[in-house]
Every structure is written in C-alpha cells, then in structure tokens.
C-alpha cells in the first residue's frame, strides 16, 4: 500500500477508535441514566430516589391485579424475580396490559416503597405466535402442572 494511503487508513482507524472509546466511557458513566426504568429489586434495595418522577418496569404478578368497583383506581405488583413493588394507578390501561406480561409504570416512589403511577405502558416481548399455537402452548403448559 502507498505510504500516504496507509497514513490515511491509520487516520480513519484512529477516528473510529477514538470515537468508540469516548462513547463507551460516556455510556458507562451514564449507564443508570440510560436505563428507561428501575427494576423492582433496585427499588427494594433503595437505589431508586424517593419523591422524584421515575419509571419502574417488570412482570405483572399473576392474581395481583385489583380494580376498585366504583372508580378507575387499580393496583398491581411488578416483579423482576428478587424484588416486588406494588403500583397504584388511576386511569385506563393499555390493551396489552395483562397479568404475567411485562409493563412499565411512570410515577413517583413513596416512602413506604409503593409506587404512585401516572402512566402505565405495556411492554411487548420479542415472541410472535399465531392464536392457535398460543392456545396449544397454554394447554400443554397447564397439562404439565
């Protein structure tokens, strides 16, 4: 390779390396801020700030959903395995919100560890199945238990 071209090639590689290093250090320093939400185990461990607007995300625990008979007040428990957080919300939930599925709630964490949400979003997973297959899988799962 011609020496001038080689020098330019080294220059190009240097730019890419320098930019990658800068961005890697930056995103490492800001890693908590880049996360869209806190996991319930982080809230239990006291890592989430109280009284400011944050988001919490996890799986909606089966049979934890409660809806008031006379209003839109609802509550449910989010879990990521080790931790659990009860979320209170008043309003209309997204169509895909369901127990056993993931959800992200935005709101304020109270002193007692419960979460007052002003917005609830459903989080979809990466799996796509036709209804018949989903039914068959559900039946097979129930038969196993």
């Amino acid at each position: 390779m011609h020496p001038v071209r080689k020098q330019r090639l080294i220059f190009v590689l240097f730019i890419i390396t320098a930019a990658s290093t800068a961005v890697a250090l930056m995103s490492y320093a800001l890693r908590q801020n880049i996360n869209l939400f806190f996991a319930p185990s982080q809230i239990v461990a006291g890592e989430a700030p109280v009284g400011v607007r944050i988001r919490v995300g996890g799986m909606v625990v089966e049979d934890s959903f409660k809806r008031a008979a006379d209003s839109l007040d609802a509550s449910f428990v989010l879990t990521d395995g080790p931790g659990q957080t009860r979320v209170y919300f008043s309003g209309i939930l997204p169509d895909l919100f369901a127990e056993g599925e993931a959800a992200v709630a935005a709101g304020v964490l109270a002193e007692d560890g419960s979460f007052m949400a002003s917005e609830v979003l459903a989080k979809h997973d990466e799996n796509y199945t036709p209804p018949e297959v989903a039914d068959a899988m559900k039946k097979a799962h129930e038969a196993n238990q």
């Binding site: 979809h124 199945t129 036709p130």
Partner: peptide, 19 residues
C-alpha cells in the same frame, strides 16, 4: 439497558422467536 423496545426477534445465532 432496560428499554421499552423488545429485544431482537431475529437473532444471528439461534432460531427466530417467531412462528
């Protein structure tokens, strides 16, 4: 990171998590 967007359905290694 924790994102609202789901992880990849089509993976470089392994079958796609799609029918």
């Amino acid at each position: 990171w924790y994102t609202l967007h789901q992880p990849a359905t089509i993976k470089l290694t392994g079958a796609p998590s799609m029918h």
